[in-house]
């Protein structure tokens, strides 16, 4: 497509300000995101205020959500899965990524292996864990063989199965993200601290950790948001009618089992709102800590 072919009249922001001609190349992508991301969100928002039974008023879907424990209970159930999973994944990622911050063959090997569970995705992990953690699976056979348990323990079709799947799929993601932040910190800073007599622990506490915190806040948010939108493993590995009836299941049921799209949109909006709330909370906490260059030298 040539730039000149674009109709200038429909374009926003026709101002006397100079606009590089190449800027119009972004137009198809802007239109695409507006049409397939922003518009559906707006449409969903409006739809959520237009309940199927119009007589009940425009807030009926939200009123229904917060009156019915089958709906409002999903927030607590999802948080109860997503927060521990996020804390485990972030908590484990920091020391391990710190240990592996220096580029090496081992680092490349481990990062390559960790990309595999990310690539396979949650459906395959759920399917695999179903057998692996099941009563006949290797985990239970090993526990029985070691005499740690007398009978197979229940690891699937309950809370534990979903939490474990969130660790399997979430940890590699959090770790690689943390690693990319930690390798962005100039090691010269820590060398300076070492010259002044700081051991590994103090180098971490005084140099790396404060510089890592802003990145860690982002990693926390992304991990949390992913865990909060858990769906396939909550159905396959969990108890989708009980302990792991997460909010995405409620939204899916409303849309594709009850064909109540306004209600489904309301649930999706609430899900987005909780994710936004936690993200804003964590990222605003970030302002309290150091923000600035993570490079050494002339900065």
């Amino acid at each position: 497509m040539t730039v000149d072919a674009l109709p200038a009249a429909t374009l926003p922001e026709r101002q006397p300000v100079r606009i590089d001609r190449a800027a119009w190349l972004a137009l198809p992508a802007v239109i695409f995101v507006l049409a397939l991301f922003i518009f559906p969100f707006g449409y969903g928002l409006v739809l959520s205020f237009s309940p199927l039974e119009a007589a009940q008023g425009w807030l009926a879907n939200y009123a229904k959500f917060f009156a019915d424990p089958a709906y409002y209970g999903t927030i607590a159930k999802t948080l109860w899965l997503a927060l521990p999973a996020t804390l485990i994944n972030v908590g484990a990622s920091v020391p391990i990524a710190y240990r592996m911050r220096v580029p090496s063959g081992g680092q490349r090997f481990v990062t390559t292996l960790l990309v595999i569970p990310i690539t396979l995705g949650t459906v395959l992990i759920a399917d695999g864990l179903l057998t692996y953690l099941g009563p006949q699976g290797w985990v239970n056979r090993i526990l029985l063989g070691l005499g740690l348990v007398d009978s197979p323990i229940r690891l699937v079709h309950n809370y534990t199965g979903v939490l474990l799947s969130l660790v399997v799929s979430g940890f590699p993601f959090t770790f690689l993200l943390t690693l990319s932040y930690i390798t962005g910190i100039d090691p010269v800073l820590a060398q300076a601290a070492r010259t002044l007599g700081a051991g590994p622990w103090r180098q971490f506490k005084e140099i790396y950790f404060p510089l890592l915190l802003p990145g860690l806040a982002v990693a926390f948010c992304l991990t949390f948001v992913q865990a909060f939108s858990v769906f396939p493993s909550a159905v396959l590995l969990g108890a989708p009618a009980g302990a792991t009836r997460v909010i995405s299941i409620a939204a899916y049921e409303a849309a594709f089992e009850n064909y109540d799209f306004p209600m489904a949109s309301a649930v999706a909006m609430i899900m987005g709102l909780v994710q936004l709330a936690i993200t804003v909370l964590v990222l605003s906490g970030r302002r309290l800590v150091y923000r600035g260059p993570v490079g050494g030298g002339k900065g």
Partner: peptide, 15 residues
């Protein structure tokens, strides 16, 4: 890329 697919997927599927 920040919003998880299942959150915007439901309004998107509706549209």
């Amino acid at each position: 890329m920040m919003v998880p697919p299942i959150t915007y997927g439901i309004p998107l599927a509706t549209v």
